[in-house]
Design a protein around this nucleic acid. Structure first.
Lengths: 115, 115
DNA sequence: ACTATATATTCCTCGCTGGGAATGCAATAC
DNA sequence: GTATTGCATTCCCAGCGAGGAATATATAGT
């Protein structure tokens, strides 16, 4: 079991996605900067960041009384790979056409199959 | 605004992810088949499928009193693209190294910077 | 020492949502 | 026609989780 459950449940929350997007713009951000940028108050930002950290979506770097948060590729890649496993669903956009082709092995020289 | 919010919130639920994975194995499934395969009871499956349908993650095909559900690439691709926009985060795996390089333009001939 | 700043944590509350049971509603079977 | 099957919908309830206020903790500044 990959941590996909924890990751996708963490990303299910809108404000947490906003924090991820903010962290994507500015490489690193302190909690205060995220508070100003997100409009949330400080306790909520800290709590959301905690959830994101346990999902390995963000990483922390302590610096004095500041804590610099940055994105962590680990969790992000887990989520990305989970959706990537469904790529075949939309990459075959010829839904009904594909079924037709796969059931008819040789479309052009069809006479060869006849006795 | 893309429907990413609706999609990612729909996928945040574990049982809904199970339904998506089940639909990925069997190309199409009726509600009864999903009930048997998932262990959930019928009303829950119907409700979860409704959420997935409004997120354009599944599509329905009516056939008599049966309803065949299949994956819909629309919502899946939206979610995939949202995570793909973060690809740069994990594709540069040399996190600390990158910082070093970007702050020191000429790594080898360092003496040139000295007075 | 005291004060102020930065962040985390606790407590409480409230709204939302998933789960369960019952019901509604078509469509097939008899 | 009635009965039955397949699915959707409604109702209610319990629990979880996000939000807010207050508090705790630590570090820097004076």
């Amino acid at each position: 079991m990959t941590g996909a459950d924890i990751v996708l449940e963490a990303v299910g929350e809108p404000n947490r996605r906003r924090l991820l997007e903010l962290l994507h713009l500015h490489q690193e951000s302190t909690v205060s900067e995220l508070v100003d940028a997100s409009g949330l108050n400080q306790p909520q930002v800290s709590k959301h960041l905690k959830v994101l950290a346990t999902a390995m979506l963000v990483a922390v770097r302590a610096d004095g009384r500041h804590r610099h948060y940055r994105l962590d590729g680990t969790g992000l890649q887990v989520a990305h790979d989970w959706f990537a496993s469904f790529e075949d669903v939309w990459q075959s956009r010829f839904d009904t056409l594909d079924e037709l082709v796969s059931t008819q092995p040789n479309p052009i020289p069809a006479e060869e199959q006849l006795p």
